[in-house]
Design a protein around this nucleic acid. Structure first.
Length: 408
DNA sequence: CTTCCACGGGAACACTGGGGTG
DNA sequence: CACCCCAGTGTTCCCGTGGAAG
């Protein structure tokens, strides 16, 4: 009997260093971003003279090098400060994880060795702890807030406070670098906050096909044994990524997954066909991942939507019918149904996640509603939902066009 | 001009999981 | 220990509102 790990022991013929293709890999090779690097470096350079760097607002689409650029410039700055003996601390905060005012300041305080619980204290107390911690000596603190838009709706108070903290500091100086995938987010801030945080503004434009090819070729050189890489594989990845707004991460994922497929099937060469397969697999995985991490109520809602779509064969659904079906399913499962108000929000969340689109329309005499349509295959969602045992009884629910619901 | 439906903002509430104090 | 304070989350309740069909 073979050992179950037998298949995994073989050295890959294709990969030299797979890490390079991973999204967490920090590349210092940032072609086509020299302009942005220069502007950012100039904005932060006052730190070298013990002056306060400008607050910077960086925006542009997903996976086009914003974070990588900032991290690169900051590492360089830190190194230079060390060399010339300046105190400069750079704190990186991901607004998706630290998404409330309290969490941001608690984390910041902890970075400066204050013992602050991650929950429990009044926020202003946490804030004073942080302030006291940094103001003990002359130093420069640069706070990078990545995905600042994620923080914005629940914790935008934090941005406001950070934008004016310097007036309360005597020794230290603090600057904020906001990174946002959503360019509109800063417009929603109060005018004073906006002008304070946007002393410098840097826009990242999506990469075009040729720039993507550059980046991918560099990584591929490090990741693969060159002879195994088929022609036009990289251009194809680049092309697909351009369709995803020039997302490098997506392009690298494609390349990595394609290579894994080639590896698994023991192919001699990495081909375009592998890339196409990878594209499908990534999409499928993504849907499964998103659907599975949804709260139960959203899964029920999604279930209602696919049942309706399959039963009526309509391209668009209206919120009224979706809610009615949702209620029936809840009844069947003996789960308390949420109110329509709440379900409206859940639908909007599914929209943001990218599983469906929901457009508000007015049907005149027939009122206001949301026009809902899935933007991923019904089968994929159904597949992803099959694991959910709670939903199993719902599978028997049948729907008759407009008139209502019949039990099957 | 009315009517209709549900959108979506806002307040208020219940709960949770942590604090500090007497 | 009991007790109240605090931030945060998910929800309900209330309600003003859009805008084309009738």
């Amino acid at each position: 009997m073979d050992n179950i790990f037998q298949d995994f022991t073989a050295e890959s013929e294709l990969f030299k260093d797979k890490e390079v293709l991973h999204p967490t890999y920090n590349s210092t090779y940032l072609p086509h971003r020299t302009k942005q690097i220069k502007i950012l470096a100039a904005a932060l350079s006052p730190a070298l003279k013990g002056e306060k760097p400008s607050n910077v607002f960086i925006h542009g689409g997903q996976g086009i090098g914003k974070t990588a650029t900032v991290k690169y410039v900051c590492t360089e700055l830190e190194a230079m400060c060390k060399k010339i003996g300046r105190k400069c601390t750079i704190v990186y905060i991901n607004g998706e994880i630290f998404d409330t005012q309290y969490r941001v300041f608690a984390y910041l305080a902890r970075v400066f060795n204050k013992r602050v619980p991650m929950i429990g204290w009044p926020t202003d107390m946490v804030y004073s702890e942080f302030k006291a911690a940094i103001d003990t000596e002359e130093r420069c603190v640069i706070v990078i807030i990545d995905d600042a838009d994620k923080l914005a709706h629940k914790g935008d108070e934090a941005l406001y406070i950070l934008s004016r903290i310097n007036s309360e500091l005597t020794n230290a100086k603090l600057s904020v670098v906001c990174i946002s995938g959503d360019s509109a987010f800063m417009e929603l801030q109060e005018p004073e906050v906006r002008s304070a945080l946007c002393e410098k503004e840097i826009l990242f434009l999506p990469y075009d096909t040729y720039q993507l090819i550059d980046i991918l070729e560099d990584r591929a050189k490090k990741a693969f044994n060159a002879s195994q890489l088929g022609d036009a594989v990289i251009p194809l990845c680049a092309e697909f990524a351009v369709q995803e707004q020039g997302d490098v991460r997506y392009a690298l994922d494609l390349l990595r997954v394609a290579a894994e497929i080639a590896d698994r099937t023991k192919s001699k060469k990495l081909t375009q066909e592998h890339v196409r397969l990878a594209k499908e697999q990534i999409e499928e995985h993504w849907i499964a991942e998103v659907v599975n991490t949804l709260p139960l109520q959203s899964k029920i809602l999604l279930n209602a939507i696919i049942i309706l779509i399959k039963a009526t064969a309509k391209r668009y659904l209206f919120s009224g019918e979706v809610y009615a079906t949702y209620q029936k399913i809840c009844a069947e499962l003996s789960i308390e149904a949420l109110t329509q108000r709440r379900v409206t929000d859940l639908i909007s969340e599914l929209d943001i996640l990218g599983l469906l689109t929901a457009k508000v329309i007015n049907r005149g005499r027939y009122g206001r509603t949301k026009e809902i349509s899935l933007i991923v295959p019904v089968e994929s969602i159904q597949l992803a939902l099959t694991g959910e045992t709670t939903l199993e009884p719902a599978a028997s629910i049948k729907v008759e066009s407009e008139s209502g619901i019949v039990w099957g």
